[in-house]
Design a binder for these strands. Sequence first.
RNA 1: GGCUCCGUAGCUCAACUGUAUAGAGCACUGGAUUUCGGCUCCAGCGGUUGCAGGUUAGAAUCCUGCCGGAGUCACCA
Length: 637
Amino acid sequence: MENLIREAILEHAETLFGTAVEETMIQFQKTRRDIKGDLTLVVFPFVKLLRTSPIEAGNKIGEFLTSQLDFIESHEVISGFLNLSFTDSYWTGRLGEIDADDHFGYEPANSRSRIMVEYSSPNTNKPLHLGHLRNIFLGYSVSEILKARGHKVVKTQIINDRGIHICKSMLAWQKFSPVNEHGERETPENTGIKGDKLVGKYYVEFDKRLNEEATSILEAWESGSFEGYSEEVIGEVKRLSGSRDGKDEKTIAGINGKIKELAKNATDLFREAKEMLIRWEARDPETYLLWSAMNGWVYSGFEDTYETMGVDFDKLYYESDTYLIGKDMVAEGLQKGVFFKKEDGSVWIDLTEDGLDEKLLLRSDGTAVYMTQDVGTAFDRYRDYPDLDGIIYTVGNEQDYHFKVLFLILDKLGYSWAKNCYHLSYGMVELRNSEGEVGKMKSREGTVVDADDLMSDVIEAATEMTKARGHIAGMSDEEKETLFKTIGLGGLKYYLLKVDPRRGMAFNPEESIELNGNTGPFIQYAHARIQSLLRKAGEVSTLSNQNEIGDQEKELVKHLSEFPAVMEEAAISYSPALVANYTYELVKMFNHFYQTVDILKEENETAKLRRLVLSRSVGKVIRNAMNTLGINVPQRM
RNA sequence: GGCUCCGUAGCUCAACUGUAUAGAGCACUGGAUUUCGGCUCCAGCGGUUGCAGGUUAGAAUCCUGCCGGAGUCACCA
C-alpha cells in the first residue's frame, strides 16, 4: 500500500505543493510502537515546498490522503511525522491474504537468475571445527534465502585436497602409524575412528614431531653449532639473532618466531614433506594411491558431519583439478601481458596502480599457489554454468585481501563476470569460557571446538531438557531422537546465525544451549504450541468478510505483512540474521498476544476464528522463516 | 609501520542503512498466571553509542583526528 500512497502523492503533487515532487522525497517508515498509526510519512522534505510549519504541511498531506484513499481511516501529525492509520477491514483483508498463501514470503521457484554459493570448503587434512560451523550454516542459509526469493541456486564447495598440508598427514601416517598383527597401519576400518579424525590425528602428530626436531635444531644454533646447513640459512639466523639486542619483548618474540620458522624449514621431516608434494605433482603412483585413500577417509567423515548438520551440496570442485586450469590461465595471462615473469621464473601481477602490491601466481619451480587455483576454479564454474549471475564466496574475513586481489585479477584477465563475484566475509568466532575470558582457537594448542563434539553436546543438552519438561509422551524412540536433534541443532544454528555475519562473535558453550530468550528452541516452542492449539481447535476455516480486529491482532498482522520485505532484504544483504531477528520479534509478539487474549475459550465465534487464523498464519511464517535458516520446527516438543 | 574491519547497558546482540524518548535477551529485583502447553507474560534496574571536533532541520549511523581491539601484509592455504 506504500505504492498506492506514493502514486497518489506524485499524481496530485501540483495541486498539493504547486510543483512536481521527486520520488525520493516520499519517505516512509514504520510507525513507532507507542504512537497511534500504521505507517508514517516523513514530512520534513515537503516543508520547504509548502513554506509552512511541519505540522501544517503534515496535516495538509494527511487530509488529502485520508479523503483520497479509502483504506486510510485517519491521520495525526506529531513533530514532522505524519502517522496514517488504516481501517480494520484493510487489516482483516491482509490477514486473509496471508492465510491463503502457503508460500507467503517466498517467490516462485526459478523465477530469478542463477547464483552459486560456495561454503565450507575445508582442507582435507583435519576435522571440521566451530569456525566451519558458522561458515557452513551461513552459506547454507544464504542459499536457502536466495532460493526462497526465486533464485536458482548452486550450492558448492572447493575442496582443498592438494598441497603441502595434505602431505604432512600422509607422511606422518606413513612414518609413525603403528602396525597391527596383520601388518596393517591404522585405518578407519581397523580402528573404528572416524576418517577425518584419524587423518587429523596424524596432522597433529606431524606438527608435534616437527616441533621436536625444530627445537633440537634451535638448541644447536643457540650453542653456535651450524654444521650441515646452507650458507643462506646460517647467515639469516645469525643476522636475526644479532638483531635481537636492545629490542623490546614483543619484537624479540617476533624475531624468535622467524628463527623458529627457519629451524622448521631446516628439518628432515619438512624436507620429506616437500619431496612428497613434488612426487604427488609428478603423479608418482604410490604417493597418489596413498593420497586418494586418505582423502577418501576424510570425505566419508565429512559426509557424516554434513548429514548431522542437515546441509548438502549440488556440485563439488576439487583443487586437484582446478589448479591445472589456473596454470593454463596464468600462461594465457602472461601472453596477454597481464602478468609478468621474474628472472627466477616466478610469475606475478603488479597491482600497485590499484593501491595493492605485487602478487605471486606461480612459484619459481612452476608449482601452483592458492591464488592460481582460485583463478582456475572461478573460470571452471562459469564454464559449467554459463548463465551464472554471480558467485558468493562464504569465507572468513581474514581473507578479505585475498579476494580483493582475486576479483581484480579476474577483471584484468578480461572476464566481465568478475564484477558479479562477491566475498561473503564473516567475522571470527571467538571462544569464551564461563569467566568471560576470550581465547583463540588454535588446533595446535588443543583449544579448537570440534564440530562433531559440539553438535553431540547440544543434542545431549536438548535431550535432557526435553525429557524433563517436554510433552513427548506417546512418541516413538525414533521420533524422540529426531526431536532432540531438531532442538539441539536448531539452538546451535540459531545461535550462530542470529548475529550479523560481518561481525565477529563470541561463542559461549553454555549460552548456545540456552532455551529462553533469543534462541532457536524458544521459537520452536512457540511453533509447537501453535500447532497444539490448532489440533485442539479441529477444522479451522478461512477468513471471510470480517471487518473488525483487535489492537494486538492488528499489530501481529502488521508484523506478518513485513515478512516478504524482510526476506528480500536478507537476500540482498546475504544476512540470515535479519530473518532470525524478525522471527524472534514475531514470536515475542505472539506470546504476548497469547498470554492476554483468549482463543479457544473465546465465545464470540467471529473473534475466535480470526484468532485461530492469525495463529495459523504466525505458525506458517515461523516455519517459512526458520526453514531458510536450516532449522526445523517441530509439531510438538 | 601500511592497508582493511570493528568499539552501543555488567555480558551477548538489535536499530529499516540519516530521523521521534537508542531497543531486546541473559543476569539481578519484584509481580501475574498454575489456563488454550510455565521452555509463558508484566514491571523495575541498567546508556554521555570509545574520545574530540565537523557536516545536517536531524548523527550510533556520514567526514576528520586521536584512543583501544582484531585481521592482513608468505614462493602457506
